[in-house]
Protein backbone atom coordinates (compact mmCIF):
# COMPACT_ATOMS: atom_id res chain seq x y z
CA UNK A 1 0.00 0.00 0.00
CA UNK A 2 1.28 3.49 -0.85
CA UNK A 3 0.80 6.64 1.17
CA UNK A 4 1.88 10.25 0.73
CA UNK A 5 3.71 11.82 3.66
CA UNK A 6 2.37 15.23 4.71
CA UNK A 7 5.14 16.22 7.10
CA UNK A 8 3.79 19.69 8.16
CA UNK A 9 5.80 22.89 8.58
CA UNK A 10 6.22 22.47 12.36
CA UNK A 11 7.14 18.80 11.98
CA UNK A 12 9.72 19.59 9.32
CA UNK A 13 11.34 22.47 11.13
CA UNK A 14 11.28 21.29 14.73
CA UNK A 15 10.78 17.52 14.99
CA UNK A 16 12.94 15.77 12.40
CA UNK A 17 13.37 12.59 14.48
CA UNK A 18 9.63 12.24 14.75
CA UNK A 19 9.26 12.38 10.95
CA UNK A 20 11.98 9.80 10.49
CA UNK A 21 10.28 7.57 13.06
CA UNK A 22 6.97 7.94 11.32
CA UNK A 23 8.51 6.94 8.00
CA UNK A 24 10.33 3.88 9.28
CA UNK A 25 7.33 2.76 11.35
CA UNK A 26 5.05 2.91 8.31
CA UNK A 27 7.59 0.87 6.35
CA UNK A 28 7.78 -1.70 9.15
CA UNK A 29 4.02 -2.07 8.84
CA UNK A 30 4.43 -2.90 5.15
CA UNK A 31 3.41 0.51 3.82
CA UNK A 32 5.32 2.31 1.08
CA UNK A 33 5.52 6.04 1.84
CA UNK A 34 6.32 8.63 -0.79
CA UNK A 35 7.18 12.28 -0.17
CA UNK A 36 5.80 14.97 -2.51
CA UNK A 37 8.62 17.48 -2.19
CA UNK A 38 6.64 20.56 -3.26
CA UNK A 39 4.77 20.55 0.06
CA UNK A 40 5.12 23.43 2.48
CA UNK A 41 2.38 24.40 4.96
CA UNK A 42 -1.36 23.69 4.98
CA UNK A 43 -2.38 27.29 5.70
CA UNK A 44 -3.83 26.68 9.17
CA UNK A 45 -2.07 29.66 10.84
CA UNK A 46 -3.58 32.00 8.27
CA UNK A 47 -7.01 30.40 8.34
CA UNK A 48 -7.35 30.38 12.10
CA UNK A 49 -6.16 33.97 12.29
CA UNK A 50 -8.91 35.14 9.97
CA UNK A 51 -6.83 35.62 6.82
CA UNK A 52 -8.91 33.46 4.57
CA UNK A 53 -7.59 34.81 1.26
CA UNK A 54 -4.06 33.84 2.22
CA UNK A 55 -5.24 30.49 3.51
CA UNK A 56 -6.97 29.86 0.21
CA UNK A 57 -3.81 30.40 -1.82
CA UNK A 58 -1.95 28.00 0.49
CA UNK A 59 -4.77 25.47 0.18
CA UNK A 60 -4.51 25.63 -3.60
CA UNK A 61 -0.82 24.90 -3.47
CA UNK A 62 -1.35 22.05 -1.00
CA UNK A 63 -4.05 20.49 -3.17
CA UNK A 64 -1.84 20.77 -6.27
CA UNK A 65 0.99 19.04 -4.40
CA UNK A 66 -1.01 16.09 -3.11
CA UNK A 67 -3.34 15.47 -6.04
CA UNK A 68 -0.66 14.04 -8.31
CA UNK A 69 -1.09 10.69 -6.59
CA UNK A 70 -4.21 8.75 -5.61
CA UNK A 71 -2.61 7.47 -2.45
CA UNK A 72 -3.95 8.43 0.99
CA UNK A 73 -2.21 11.33 2.69
CA UNK A 74 -0.84 10.75 6.19
CA UNK A 75 0.15 13.46 8.65
CA UNK A 76 1.60 13.46 12.18
CA UNK A 77 -0.59 16.43 13.08
CA UNK A 78 -4.30 16.36 13.87
CA UNK A 79 -4.69 20.12 13.50
CA UNK A 80 -3.26 20.10 9.98
CA UNK A 81 -5.60 17.28 8.98
CA UNK A 82 -8.48 19.24 10.47
CA UNK A 83 -7.42 22.18 8.33
CA UNK A 84 -7.49 20.04 5.20
CA UNK A 85 -11.01 18.96 6.15
CA UNK A 86 -11.95 22.64 6.15
CA UNK A 87 -10.59 23.17 2.63
CA UNK A 88 -14.01 22.62 0.97
CA UNK A 89 -15.33 25.68 2.86
CA UNK A 90 -12.74 27.82 1.13
CA UNK A 91 -14.14 27.24 -2.35
CA UNK A 92 -17.59 27.89 -3.82
CA UNK A 93 -19.84 24.85 -3.89
CA UNK A 94 -19.90 23.17 -7.25
CA UNK A 95 -16.51 24.54 -8.32
CA UNK A 96 -13.73 22.23 -9.45
CA UNK A 97 -11.60 23.24 -6.49
CA UNK A 98 -14.42 22.48 -4.10
CA UNK A 99 -14.80 18.99 -5.57
CA UNK A 100 -11.07 18.40 -5.44
CA UNK A 101 -10.93 19.59 -1.83
CA UNK A 102 -13.65 17.14 -0.82
CA UNK A 103 -11.89 14.30 -2.58
CA UNK A 104 -8.53 15.04 -1.01
CA UNK A 105 -9.96 15.65 2.47
CA UNK A 106 -11.63 12.25 2.33
CA UNK A 107 -8.25 10.55 2.00
CA UNK A 108 -6.20 12.65 4.40
CA UNK A 109 -5.64 11.08 7.80
CA UNK A 110 -3.88 11.81 11.01
CA UNK A 111 -1.35 9.10 11.84
CA UNK A 112 -3.15 7.39 14.75
CA UNK A 113 -6.42 7.71 12.88
CA UNK A 114 -4.84 5.95 9.91
CA UNK A 115 -3.41 3.13 12.01
CA UNK A 116 -6.48 2.40 14.09
CA UNK A 117 -9.40 3.33 11.87
CA UNK A 118 -8.02 2.60 8.41
CA UNK A 119 -5.58 -0.24 9.02
CA UNK A 120 -7.31 -1.65 12.08
CA UNK A 121 -3.94 -1.86 13.82
CA UNK A 122 -3.42 -1.10 17.51
CA UNK A 123 -0.25 -3.07 18.21
CA UNK A 124 2.67 -1.71 16.21
CA UNK A 125 5.25 -3.83 18.00
CA UNK A 126 6.60 -0.98 20.08
CA UNK A 127 8.64 -1.36 23.23
CA UNK A 128 8.95 1.65 25.56
CA UNK A 129 9.68 0.62 29.16
CA UNK A 130 8.86 3.90 30.91
CA UNK A 131 6.24 5.66 33.02
CA UNK A 132 4.27 7.76 30.63
CA UNK A 133 1.44 10.30 30.82
CA UNK A 134 -0.57 11.67 27.91
CA UNK A 135 -1.85 15.14 27.01
CA UNK A 136 -4.87 14.90 24.69
CA UNK A 137 -4.43 17.69 22.11
CA UNK A 138 -7.61 19.63 21.34
CA UNK A 139 -7.58 19.15 17.58
CA UNK A 140 -7.03 15.41 17.82
CA UNK A 141 -9.62 15.02 20.52
CA UNK A 142 -12.40 17.41 19.61
CA UNK A 143 -11.40 18.51 16.14
CA UNK A 144 -11.11 15.03 14.68
CA UNK A 145 -13.08 13.09 17.30
CA UNK A 146 -10.14 10.80 18.11
CA UNK A 147 -10.98 10.04 21.70
CA UNK A 148 -9.22 6.78 22.36
CA UNK A 149 -7.08 5.87 19.35
CA UNK A 150 -3.87 7.18 20.87
CA UNK A 151 -4.58 5.42 24.15
CA UNK A 152 -5.31 2.13 22.49
CA UNK A 153 -2.02 2.37 20.64
CA UNK A 154 -0.17 3.26 23.85
CA UNK A 155 -1.88 0.40 25.67
CA UNK A 156 -0.27 -2.06 23.26
CA UNK A 157 3.24 -0.71 23.78
CA UNK A 158 5.29 -3.28 25.71
CA UNK A 159 6.33 -2.37 29.25
CA UNK A 160 4.84 1.09 29.05
CA UNK A 161 3.26 2.18 32.31
CA UNK A 162 0.39 4.60 31.63
CA UNK A 163 -0.46 7.27 34.18
CA UNK A 164 -3.62 9.30 33.55
CA UNK A 165 -2.94 13.01 33.49
CA UNK A 166 -5.21 15.19 35.61
CA UNK A 167 -7.22 17.43 33.28
CA UNK A 168 -5.84 15.48 30.38
CA UNK A 169 -8.29 17.09 27.96
CA UNK A 170 -7.75 20.69 29.01
CA UNK A 171 -6.07 22.93 26.46
CA UNK A 172 -2.35 23.56 27.05
CA UNK A 173 -2.67 27.23 26.12
CA UNK A 174 -0.91 27.22 22.75
CA UNK A 175 -3.78 27.98 20.36
CA UNK A 176 -1.53 29.22 17.55
CA UNK A 177 -1.83 33.00 17.34
CA UNK A 178 -3.36 33.05 20.83
CA UNK A 179 0.03 32.31 22.35
CA UNK A 180 1.45 35.56 21.04
CA UNK A 181 -1.68 37.73 21.23
CA UNK A 182 -2.40 36.97 24.88
CA UNK A 183 0.88 35.62 26.27
CA UNK A 184 -0.09 36.11 29.91
CA UNK A 185 -3.21 33.98 29.61
CA UNK A 186 -1.39 31.43 27.45
CA UNK A 187 1.36 31.27 30.04
CA UNK A 188 -1.08 30.73 32.88
CA UNK A 189 -2.78 27.91 31.01
CA UNK A 190 0.61 26.36 30.28
CA UNK A 191 1.57 26.61 33.94
CA UNK A 192 -1.56 24.67 34.88
CA UNK A 193 -0.74 21.97 32.36
CA UNK A 194 2.88 21.72 33.46
CA UNK A 195 1.84 21.53 37.11
CA UNK A 196 -0.41 18.56 36.37
CA UNK A 197 2.30 16.86 34.31
CA UNK A 198 4.84 17.20 37.10
CA UNK A 199 2.30 15.97 39.64
CA UNK A 200 1.67 12.84 37.57
CA UNK A 201 5.06 11.40 38.46
CA UNK A 202 5.66 10.25 34.90
CA UNK A 203 9.06 10.13 33.20
CA UNK A 204 7.66 11.10 29.82
CA UNK A 205 4.74 13.19 28.68
CA UNK A 206 3.41 12.04 25.35
CA UNK A 207 1.84 14.55 23.00
CA UNK A 208 0.41 13.89 19.53
CA UNK A 209 0.61 17.43 18.18
CA UNK A 210 3.72 19.48 17.34
CA UNK A 211 2.31 22.84 18.47
CA UNK A 212 1.32 21.51 21.89
CA UNK A 213 4.63 19.73 22.14
CA UNK A 214 6.65 22.90 21.54
CA UNK A 215 4.57 24.70 24.12
CA UNK A 216 4.71 21.99 26.76
CA UNK A 217 8.39 21.20 26.18
CA UNK A 218 9.24 24.86 26.68
CA UNK A 219 7.09 25.00 29.79
CA UNK A 220 8.70 21.92 31.32
CA UNK A 221 12.18 23.26 30.60
CA UNK A 222 11.34 26.61 32.19
CA UNK A 223 9.98 24.80 35.24
CA UNK A 224 13.26 22.93 35.51
CA UNK A 225 11.50 19.62 35.20
CA UNK A 226 13.32 16.43 34.24
CA UNK A 227 10.21 15.02 32.58
CA UNK A 228 10.87 14.36 28.90
CA UNK A 229 8.34 15.61 26.39
CA UNK A 230 8.00 13.24 23.44
CA UNK A 231 5.85 12.95 20.35
CA UNK A 232 3.40 10.04 20.32
CA UNK A 233 4.82 8.72 17.06
CA UNK A 234 8.30 8.41 18.52
CA UNK A 235 6.92 6.23 21.32
CA UNK A 236 5.11 4.05 18.80
CA UNK A 237 8.28 3.70 16.77
CA UNK A 238 10.41 2.89 19.79
CA UNK A 239 11.94 -0.56 19.86
CA UNK A 240 13.23 -0.63 23.45
CA UNK A 241 14.59 2.31 25.41
CA UNK A 242 14.67 5.87 24.05
Amino acid sequence: MHVQLFITCLGENFFPEMLESMTTLLERLGITPCFPSEQTCCGQPQYNSGFEAEARSMARRWMRTFSHSDAPIISPSGSCVEMVRHYPHLFPEGSEEHTLAIELAARTFEFTEFLVRQLGVTDVGAHFPHRVTYHASCHLLRGLGLRDEAKRLLAAVRDLEFITLTEEETCCGFGGIFSVLYPEVSGAMLENKVRHIIASGAEYVVVGEAGCLMNIAGGLHKAGSAIHPIHLIEVLAAQGGA
Partner: peptide, 10 residues
Protein backbone atom coordinates in the same frame (compact mmCIF):
# COMPACT_ATOMS: atom_id res chain seq x y z
CA UNK B 1 -12.66 39.15 21.57
CA UNK B 2 -12.84 36.60 18.73
CA UNK B 3 -9.12 36.03 19.31
CA UNK B 4 -9.57 35.48 23.04
CA UNK B 5 -9.73 31.74 22.48
CA UNK B 6 -7.38 28.88 21.66
CA UNK B 7 -10.12 27.27 19.53
CA UNK B 8 -9.86 24.24 21.81
CA UNK B 9 -13.50 23.34 21.14
CA UNK B 10 -14.52 22.43 24.68
Amino acid sequence: LPYASTLCGA
